[in-house]
Each structure stands twice: as structure tokens, then as C-alpha cells.
Design a protein around this nucleic acid. Structure first.
Length: 567
RNA sequence: GCGCCCUUAGCUCAGCGGAUAGAGCGUCCGGCUACGAACCGGGAGGUCGCAGGUUCGAAUCCUGCAGGGCGCACCA
């Protein structure tokens, strides 16, 4: 609204002949870092001064003169090299309380996505063992990203790609079968390259308990096949339950095998995908292998062509991946987002090139998350699924809890490597920023409970939704204290923060905001007595407190972190 | 050797074209006879890795260099 206000002012000045401009520039507003510079500032005058044949300051004065006097604007001033600084009127800020409380959990929603469909694929850990700590980061990131995109008007699907075919499944099966035989008292060798983790033996033991030793004399191939499926199902269920335990649930668990399975016409999706690429002219044969001409799409930057079918006739993982992405787009998504660890960044170029070759240029976004280094008391914990020396994500969740884990993972940008010190996370759990934010929410609920005379175990959110306390009719013009206005300004930022987080696929913007908002609330609380003898002021402040509760719960919800009403 | 990412306070990190660069932790000094002190206020602490360039203006964009992480298979 302020944007159009500035645009109109400039247009009016041009129409009145005060400014000579053939073309009106785009007006952009920004929030000055220094609050002394107002709530909003625009640099149009500096941008357009040259074209207008005047100085930035003069142009700024002309525009400012036409903005002054608008009811939502309390002050306009020209500053520095030609910034136009605007301060919102108290009335404009106070209105926000009504808006937030009327919209409730919908406050901050936008239509950025226009209802388009987006798929977010993340975690996709191999179903041959427990997740490592990095998977926890992708889980938190992907789920929060999905929540943010939903809030920004996208229709989102969460997907987990299950790599349930290929060599690692064979090794997995052999490993479990061998442990099973050992458990049954047989002397069998255990190869170095098999999975060494103790969980393998645990799975074997569990199968033994369920089915006894009947498989110990079975045909080795049959035994392996049986154990592969049995153990695979168990691991997959385990992954699902650990993820569910941190509030991450997938809509689709997509099996890689389905890509290789022949369809009604006898052809698999991989076959079909390769046909599509061949028809489009991106496939050739060389040295007995089948290649994808990745370098024929130089705009994606892959430096060499890629083998899809090896000389020995086997398909590469990349071939399955292409079929997988073809399948995604066939399911009607306008946009597909993959979250990959930095150790896979070398695949980005070829995957994007392949999607373009399939006829979906620019519809694939790949978010590369830098890796998590796990430390224990300052010492690096090496993680290897093969040797089994690892701290699993599940163990981490048990130690620090889902809220702190999620918050910690989301607190920094995805292109920032993350050091996670288990000892520190445990020790500092009471000073973890997540508690700072949650405490603000609990404190709010406590105030509201007390003001409304609700029992300690009452659900404040439900009571507020039912409208049984904190009437909407408060006289908000009484909110004039600096701390109150600062808190109002912070509440007003929420929709912008959501949009930016969605636009940049950067949920960590929300943690920064959540801490700012909590700080503004705590300051307000310290300086302004909420429940007092003055009924009118009490009413206005309770309304502000309730609006703060809604927004705080909103950010925490987008982060997937709980908003406790008491701690 | 090539490619991607990173380098901001003692530590961990925000800021990603704007005006005096911020937060948390740590450190020093203060604040509960009222709604939750898991809180609040204040101090100390920075040539934004280095060098050029682009422009009204650069921590932010471009180039080069240095340091660190991760990749560079007819592996999965």
C-alpha cells in the first residue's frame, strides 16, 4: 500500500509538471536498518534523478511533499543522499492487532504460489540402516520449507525416494543373512565390505526370534532374498517412525523398484525415459554403452556426457534418477525441489540438464545443504555406515529432543556448514534459543490465562478461538508506548518474512525473525504492565498480547517447533 | 588439475546493492514487595580473508589471489 502511495505521488508530480520523467521507475521499499530512519524507506529519487535531470534531493523533496498528510503516514523526511523515509502512523500500526486476531493462523498467508503444485523431495536415506545426523538436517529443512511454501500459496507434496534396488541392497541382504547364521550358531565369514553396524545383528536377531532357525539350512539365494525384504521393511518402518517422531511425515514414499518394473506394455519407466531422450536427440551409443548428451545443454554446465546403460548391460543410478524425475513431472507438478547434501552437488548439473531434455527446463530446483559435522566435546565423530561407528539421528533426537533438534538445524543458512556438538547441545539445552522463543509463548499464555481467570490447565488457543476472552473491541489507540509500537512493527513484518523465506527457500529466515519477535515481546512485557487497574489499557494490551501469541505460534508452526503454553 | 560452497566480534552465526555492520554464547556492570528472572537494561569487543574493478553508494555484484569444506566413475 505504501508502494502505491509513493508511485501515485510520483505520477502526480509528473502530471503536474513538477518532474520531467518519460517513464516511471519501479518503486521499491525497504526497511531501514536503523529505526531512527523510519519504518520504510525508498530510493526512487536516487534511481530516477538522472533521468529526471535533477538532483536526488530535489526530486525526493517533491515526492515527499505529496506523501505527507496521508493518514497512514505519520512523518516523511528526506535524508542522506536522497532517501525518502516514512514513518507509519500509530493508527496504521494499531489496526494490525485487529487484522492478526481476525485472521488467526492465516495471518501471513500469501498467494505467491497461486495454487501451483510443488513437490519437495528430501531425506531419501538409503533403507539399509539408520539415518545419520545430516539426514536430520534435511528432514527439518525439507519439512519446514514445505510448510512455508504452503503458507505462501503453493500446493505441496512431501516425498521420500526409497533406493530399494541396486548393489547396496544386495550387500545389506548378505550382511543380515550372515549375522542371522552367526546368531544361529553357524561359523560363517563376514566380509569387510558388508555393513558392520550392530543394528544389522539386531535386525537378524529379531528375525530369528520371529521365525526361528528355519532359514539356516535354506538355499542361500532364497535366504538372501527373504532377508532382503524382511530387513528392508523393518528399516523403512524405522525411518518412518523416527521421522514421524520429529513431526516429519511424507505424503509419498516412492520406490525406485517401481521404475524398473515392466508396465502393461512390458516396458519400464526407465525404458520409457530413455526413449523420450532418444527421440529428443540426447542419446547416443559409444564403447558399447548408452550415453546421455549432457554437454548438448551447455547452459546447465555439466562438463561431460553421462552413461545411462553400461557396457555390461546394467543401468546406472543416473538412468533411474532420470526416469524418477520424468515420473515426478508426469504427476503434474509445476515445480520440483530436491534437497541434496553437498556431497551430491556434482549431480546437480546433469540432473537439471536431464530435466530440460525431458521437456521441463527450469522446473527443477536443487537445494544443496552443506554437511553436518558431528562433534562430541569438541572432537569430530567420524561417521560411517559401513564400519558402524556413528551417532545416529535417532540418538541425537533422544538426547536433545525434537524441538531443539529442529530449531538447531534450521537456525543457519543451507549453504553454511553446520557443526553439531552433542555435548554442547545437551549442556546448553536450557540456553538454546528455541527455549527463548518458546518461553515468550508460554509467558503470553500465562498472562492470558490469568487475565481471563482460566485454570492452569486450560488451552489458551482454544479459549481465544472461542472468543470467550480478550474482546475484539479494545481501544487500540491506547497502544502508544515505544515498546508497544516496536512490537507492533515486528508483528507487521511476519508476512514479508514468510514471503522471503518461501521465495528464497530459506526457512532460517524464520528463526531469526522468531528470536526478534520474542525479544520485542519480552521488552514490551518488561516495560508495560499488561493487567492493571486501567480496564481500557488492559483491554488494549491484552489484545496486543493475543496478537503476539498468534504470530509467535505461527512462526513456530512453520518451523515445525512446538509452541508450549507452559514450560 | 577442474568445479561448487564457505571466509563478518573471543566462539557459533545473521545481514546478500543503501545511511553509524547485528544477534546469541562468553566476559564485565546493573535490575524481581505486581501479570512466568528460562526475562530485561548497559559496557567492552570488527581495517566484514587479501587485492583490484563496477556506481551516486559494496560485507553484499565482477575478476584475481589465499585459506577451509565437498565433489570430480561405464559406484550407489
Amino acid at each position: 500500500m505504501l508502494v502505491t502511495l509513493v508511485e501515485d505521488a510520483l505520477a502526480a508530480a509528473v502530471a503536474a509538471g513538477e518532474v520531467a520523467l518519460a517513464e516511471l521507475p519501479d518503486v521499491e521499499l525497504e526497511r531501514p536498518r536503523d529505526p531512527a530512519h523510519g519504518d520504510w524507506a525508498t530510493n526512487v529519487a536516487m534511481v530516477a534523478a538522472k533521468a529526471a535531470g535533477t538532483s536526488p534531493r530535489v526530486l525526493a523533496d517533491v515526492i515527499a511533499a505529496r506523501i505527507a498528510g496521508h493518514p497512514d503516514v505519520a512523518a516523511v523526511e528526506v535524508a542522506g543522499p536522497g532517501f525518502i523515509n516514512m514513518r507509519l502512523s500509530d493508527a496504521a500500526l494499531q489496526r494490525l492487532v485487529v487484522e492478526v486476531r481476525a485472521q488467526g493462523a492465516d495471518f501471513g498467508r500469501s498467494d505467491l504460489g497461486h495454487g501451483r503444485r510443488v513437490q519437495v523431495e528430501f531425506v531419501s536415506a538409503n533403507p539399509v540402516g539408520p539415518m545419520h545426523v545430516g539426514h536430520g538436517r534435511w528432514a527439518a529443512l525439507g519439512d519446514s520449507m514445505a510448510r512455508v511454501l504452503e503458507h505462501a500459496g503453493w500446493r505441496v507434496q512431501r516425498e521420500f525416494y526409497v533406493n530399494d534396488s541396486g548393489v547396496q541392497m544386495d550387500i545389506f541382504a548378505k550382511s543380515v543373512a550372515a549375522r542371522y547364521l552367526q546368531h544361529c550358531g553357524r561359523e560363517v565369514p563376514f566380509e569387510d565390505e558388508w555393513y558392520q553396524g550392530t543394528y544389522i545383528a539386531e535386525i537378524a536377531e529379531e528375525i530369528c526370534q520371529g521365525e526361528g532357525a528355519v532359514w539356516s539350512d535354506a538355499d542361500p539365494a532364497e535366504r538372501e532374498a527373504h532377508f532382503r525384504e524382511k530387513a528392508y521393511a523393518q528399516v523403512l518402518e524405522h525411518l518412518r517412525s523416527v521421522l514421524h517422531g520429529m513431526g516429519v511425515d511424507f505424503d509419498v514414499w516412492f520406490s525406485e523398484r517401481s521404475l524398473h518394473a515392466p508396465g502393461p506394455d512390458g516396458r519400464s519407466e526407465v525404458d520409457v525415459a530413455m526413449d523420450r531422450l532418444r527421440e529428443a536427440g540426447y542419446i547416443y551409443e559409444k564403447d558399447g554403452a548408452t550415453w546421455f548428451a549432457s554437454t548438448a545443454l551447455p547452459e546447465y554446465g555439466d562438463d561431460k556426457d553421462r552413461v545411462l546403460r553400461k557396457a555390461d548391460g546394467d543401468l546406472t543410478y543416473f538412468a533411474a534418477d532420470i526416469a524418477y524425475h520424468m515420473d515426478k513431472f508426469a504427476r503434474g507438478f509445476d515445480r520440483v525441489i530436491n534437497i541434496w547434501g553437498a556431497d551430491h552437488h556434482g549431480y546437480v548439473a546433469r540432473m537439471k540438464a536431464a530435466c530440460a531434455a525431458l521437456g521441463h527446463p527450469g522446473q527443477l530446483d536443487i537445494v544443496i545443504g552443506q554437511l553436518v559435522t558431528l562433534l562430541r566435546n569438541g572432537e569430530i565423530v567420524r561417521m560411517s555406515k559401513r564400519t558402524g561407528e556413528m551417532v545416529t539421528f535417532e540418538e541425537l533426537l533422544d538426547e536433545v529432543g525434537p524441538d531443539a533438534a529442529r530449531y538447531f538445524f534450521l537456525r543457519r543458512g543451507t549453504d553454511q556448514p553446520l557443526d553439531f556438538d552433542i555435548g554442547l547441545a545437551k549442556e546448553q539445552s536450557s540456553e538454546n534459543p528455541v527455549y527463548y522463543v518458546q518461553y515468550a509463548h508460554a509467558r503470553i499464555c500465562s498472562i492470558l490465562r490469568r487475565a481471563a481467570g482460566l485454570p492452569a490447565e486450560a488451552d489458551v488457543a482454544d479459549a481465544a478461538a472461542a472468543g470467550t476472552f480478550v474482546p475484539m473491541s479494545a481501544d487500540l489507540s491506547l497502544l502508544t508506548d515505544q515498546a508497544e509500537l516496536t512490537l507492533l512493527r515486528k508483528l507487521a513484518e511476519f508476512p514479508e518474512v514468510v514471503e522471503m523465506a518461501a521465495d528464497r527457500l530459506a526457512p532460517h529466515k524464520l528463526t531469526t525473525y522468531a528470536e526478534d519477535l520474542a525479544a520485542s515481546f519480552h521488552q514490551f512485557y518488561t516495560l508495560c504492565r499488561v493487567v492493571s487497574d486501567d480496564a481500557a489499557v488492559t483491554g488494549a494490551r491484552l489484545a496486543l498480547v493475543d496478537a503476539s501469541r498468534i504470530v509467535l505460534a505461527g512462526v513456530l508452526g512453520l518451523l515445525g517447533v512446538g509452541a508450549p503454553q507452559r514450560m
